[in-house]
Structure formats: structure tokens, C-alpha cells
Amino acid sequence: MDFLNILNGALGEIISPTTAAYGLAALGLAVHFGYTGLLNFGQAGFMAMGAYGFAISTLTFNAPFWVAVLVALVCSVVFAFLLGIPTLRLRADYLAIVTIAAAEIARYVVTTNRLTDVTGSAGGLNGFTNGFYALNPFPEGRYDLGFVALSHRDLWVRVTAWALVALCCVLVLLLMRSPWGRVLKGIREDENAVRSLGKNVYAYKMQALVIGGILGTLAGILFTLPRSSVQPANYGTELTFFLWTCLLLGGMATVLGPVLGAMIFWVVLSLTQGLLYGAIESGIITFITTTQAGQLRYIMVGIALMLLMIFRPQGVLGNKRELAFT
């Protein structure tokens, strides 16, 4: 077993674009649930809007990179309105049901065979990231960061991803410290009380849903860039629940919590995979196969989440004081 290799792999996960995408989408959930109290179980749907909006406009309509991004964002806003208009007047749990259903509808629509020309059906779409890599300012070559060596393409994806995450974190932080953010937190605590103070709760909830959705959509685009492919199977409900795991790991009503949660999530997955596979291959563990080990690590993530909820329910960065009164 090569411990150094396993450790390097885990460190590489911290800066991987997938971690950034998970962090960004979980930040969207923090805006939805942590700050506004909107139970969104369809964040995978928002990510699919980003991925498919971007990929389809590039492949089918030959749109340039920035137009494709804009189309994806418009799709996300429309999706948010479709979800929000009927449900935001109702209690939070109705939104949860509608979002989980809407995300599944979106996934089934893109998997439909009739739409194979546009969406690629179950096979998904490939080769739509040339516009993005054309913007790469890094000259061709290998870049050694100490624990990983990256190609100029990999470096460009990582730099873009983390710059975007940092920008979104700053924006969300500023928003939540403003009086606007205060109204959102008030809505989370008691929306009727906020209404009685003369605030248009419905409009605030819609704004929060759209902003969190946009973060999810940007994450969806980020998620596709290193792969240069979109697979409908990636946008199932388990993606949403992984994002919730990241959010709960890091702390719900925090800005850096979801990002840190995503890092922990992927490092734990990578470490357990490395250790289990290493142990199986070197014959230390004989009673499971490597395929079973792949599933076992998700079980371990689940156990880690349970332990966290019991011993540190506010998450890593959450405020213990806030939790004392629930």
C-alpha cells in the first residue's frame, strides 16, 4: 500500500473542480435552506439546468462560451420561477416535494429517446468545452504544485473553478450581512412575523430561490468542464443528497461551511477508497471485493454524517449557540 500516493490523491481532491462544483452547489443550498429556510431537494435539477443549458446551446446552436453560460443562467431562473410561483406561498415542506419531483422530471426529459438529437438521451453530450479551453491563458505544459502535477488544461479549470467559488462566497457573505440578508434570516425564523413588519415575504423567497439556483447552475457548468461531457445519470437525487451532506458537514447558515463540507466529503471518499483498495489488493482485507469497497465508502460517509449530527450537529463551522434553541 502506497500511503504517500493515497494522501496525494486526497490532497488533490481538495482542489479538484468537482469539489469546487459541489461546494458552490452546496452554497446555493445554504442560501436556500441555511438562510431562508427553503427546503430545496432539487439542487441536482438546477445543476442539470446549468450543464444542459450550457452544452445544448454550444452543440446545437453553436453559441460562444459566454452566451452559453448566459443561456444556462436564464434556464435556471426560469426553472426557479416555475418551482417558486406555485409553491412559495405554501409551507416549506411543499417546496421540498415539488423540487425533488421537478429535478427528476428534468432528468427524465433529457433522457427521453425522442430528444436524442438535442440532449443525447442516456448517452449524454460530449465535446462542448472548446470555447472554455480557448480562453486558457496558461501556456501548454506540466505544472507541478508539489502534491500533484497538472496539465495546463487542468490548471485552467481549477483556477477558474476556485476563483468562481471565491467570488460567489464573497457575494453571498456581503448579501447575508446586508439588511436584505437579515430579512431572509427573519423569514427562516418566522415568515408571518416578517410579513407583519411590512416585508413582501414572497418576493424575498423568490429572490433567494433564484440566487441559490444560479449558484447551483454555475456549479453544474463547473461540474461538466473537466469531463467535457454531460451524463443524465449524474443528476439524480443522490447528487442532491451529497450536496446536503456537504452542507450539513460544513454548517448550514455559514458561507465557507458548504465549501469546507465539500472538501471534507471528497477527501473522506478519496482516503477511504485509497485505503480500502490498497488493503484489498495487498490481501489485508479478503472478505470484500473492490466493487463492494466502492459502495462501502458511501456507507462510511453516511456513518460519518450520523456521528457528526450526534456530536457536532451545527456542522464544522456552524455556531453552537444558534443550535441551542431549536
Binding site: 436584505w180 418566522d190 416578517v194 429572490q207
Partner: peptide, 25 residues
Amino acid sequence: TKVMGKLTVLENMRLGAADQPGERL
């Protein structure tokens, strides 16, 4: 009684004020 439990007393009070332009997105 409806108070925003996880906001401070002062933040609760500020929330009651009208005409705060910062409450617009």
C-alpha cells in the same frame, strides 16, 4: 409570540424598521 429566535434582540428590532433601502436586493 413570534420572535426570530436565532437573530439577536437588536437584529429583531432592526428588522422592524421601515424604509431601509438595503432590504432591496
